[in-house]
Design a protein around this nucleic acid. Structure first.
Lengths: 339, 339
DNA sequence: CTGAAAGCGCTTACAG
DNA sequence: CTGAAAGCGCTTACAG
């Protein structure tokens, strides 16, 4: 309702110039005389004119919209990443169109179609797997895709993750150095690359020391599953003395459950997580965990995506961001441990 | 870069019909003979054609994009709301374009301009205040706005909140019934309607019982501020015996701090929050809190917005969703307390 | 530097 | 039901 949209033609009329002149004044890098610029700006100001981004997108072929596919926001890692991503993109003149993805592969397929219908300039897929068919489709449509916090399954997409295998291995080294010898792993979802890589790191560390896993169970990145697994493990006569958990989100559930069982993490049993979400530093958890540097991961994602969009970079990049162990109170600290 | 976009003209050529015919087949409610539909669908399928949403938006004037302005995602209430909102909108054929807002009023102004440049069909502003100037601008541009979890300051925008004043009053009643007589309030940010309304409810309950607040301090919806306030309150000789906290996010910080001080919430001191975010149910907090029903708030937001967009509803609606007290372990439960 | 014109990919009256 | 045509609001060669 109301008087609604002002167009460049109206501004042109008021300023006494052609419509193209108005367009040039609002196009960075286009040439216009100071006099024209002045007249146009004044008229635009008076009318409250702003260029229609959609019309611009149509002719330029650049929408300045980045599609974001995100699965579940319950794990604090994702809202944090989302906020950083949105800010980074916003400062570069892009905006995020959000698509919440069902967890099935079919679901994600239809979501991707939706996404492309909006003529997005690029896609960030956070923590979702993508069929190679879909990857091919995006490539064919010329839309850059970068997988965030997920490896690709063979296809030629870019992706950024932390060094999951290395991080898990070093976190496990820490537990071993702490003198634990019944170390169990509540693993990340084995249907995801992160879940598998972290488990591989866990196993490698143990193997290196000639040890065997006390137990490994798939926690599906779910609080409930992790909680049940904890109960199960602690219900056995041969209890683990340390738990390496596939992500912080599950580790919180594990700690809650241990306390229900009357155990104090850090004293009776050691718990180490993965991610270092803000909540890990909160007093009630004070979780020792492997930091996955979300800010650096987001920066790498944005750089990779924009290189492909703006500089036409073609080679898919696979980036692994290093992390570090954050020492807190949920796990015994080995004598003389440094970094 | 690949063969890229297929247009309706190409489909028309292959199908042996006019371009308008193709358009009609893809426009719900437009008329086309079964034969045409069949030919067009086959051709579209073969070419991998899908209508360009942006082009459609240009001519129809409907972008099917909803702008979402969101301030900070650290408080779990917002990611939860975001996910629900995205799903609800997605199922109705809309998508969310995200704008993260600076906290200043100026910042939010420029963000809103950005938003309108994208020709969004509607705007949801979550937990941000809006200048009445801005509200007027949106109205003039014919873009419906609904404020989520924030009251409007006089202007004619729609908004949905929980019944903040009532909820706070009843939460405080509960504390009074529990026999507490030194009840302090760590208030939500007094620059926000929610913060003020909840404080008003707190004061009303006390007044009703002829009591005075033990103390009221503005926690700014910040963990750090709430934590410092807790230390301050507990450092005095005349300590509060109960704390009503302006939202769960701060209440978690308050509980962490109380424990650092050697106090056990629910036993040594009662704590009640506001929101009932998922984390409130987690074992480490087990927070007694007033539930702000986020799903109903989101539904109301979507209904209000789409009524204005699609049905042309003009009257601004101000909706207050009722809530309920969720009894957990962080506050003493009065003898014989029901509901 | 500037204007007239073509065109981005659609939808939607308008005739038939 | 169908096609030719106009038009959504811009950008971008093309001449001048």
């Amino acid at each position: 309702m109301a008087q609604s949209k002002v167009t460049s033609a109206e501004v042109a009329r008021l300023a006494g110039v052609s419509q193209s002149a108005v367009s040039r004044v609002f196009t960075p890098g286009a040439s216009a005389s100071p006099k024209t610029v002045e007249k146009v700006k004044a008229a635009a100001q008076q009318l409250g004119y702003r260029p229609n981004v959609l019309a611009r997108a149509m002719v330029s072929g650049k929408s300045r919209i980045i599609g974001l596919v995100v699965a579940y926001l319950e794990n604090q890692f994702y809202p944090v990443a989302l906020e950083l991503l949105s800010n980074a993109l916003q400062s570069r003149g892009y905006h995020i169109l959000i698509f919440t993805a069902p967890n099935s592969i079919d679901g994600i397929d239809s979501v991707m179609q939706d996404l492309m219908d909006y003529q997005v300039d690029g896609i960030v897929a956070a923590s979702v797997s993508m069929s190679s068919d879909l990857a091919a489709r995006a490539k064919q449509a010329g839309i850059p895709v970068v997988l965030f916090n997920r490896g690709q399954d063979g296809e030629g997409l870019s992706n950024v993750t932390s060094a999951n295998r290395d991080g898990a291995e070093r976190a496990t080294d820490f537990l071993i150095a702490g003198g634990h010898d019944r170390i169990a792993h509540i693993a990340g979802w084995q249907g995801s690359s992160t879940g598998r890589d972290r488990q591989a790191g866990f196993e490698a560390a143990l193997r290196k020391h000639g040890m065997a896993p006390h137990a490994i169970v798939d926690g599906h990145y779910s609080r409930d599953v992790a909680s049940a697994a904890t109960r199960e493990l602690l219900g056995q006569s041969n209890r683990p003395d340390a738990l390496f958990v596939g992500n912080d989100h599950m580790a919180f559930a594990v700690m809650d459950t241990l306390r229900e069982l009357g155990l104090t993490p850090g004293r009776d049993i050691s718990v180490v997580g993965y991610d270092d979400v803000p909540m890990a530093a909160w007093g009630s958890y004070n979780l020792t965990t492997w930091r996955q540097p979300v800010n650096r991961m987001v920066d790498a994602t944005v750089d990779t995506l924009l290189d492909q969009i703006e500089a036409g970079a073609h080679m898919p990049r696979s980036l692994e961001i290093p992390g570090e162990l954050i020492l807190r109170g949920s796990a015994r600290i080995p004598e003389g441990w440094t970094s």
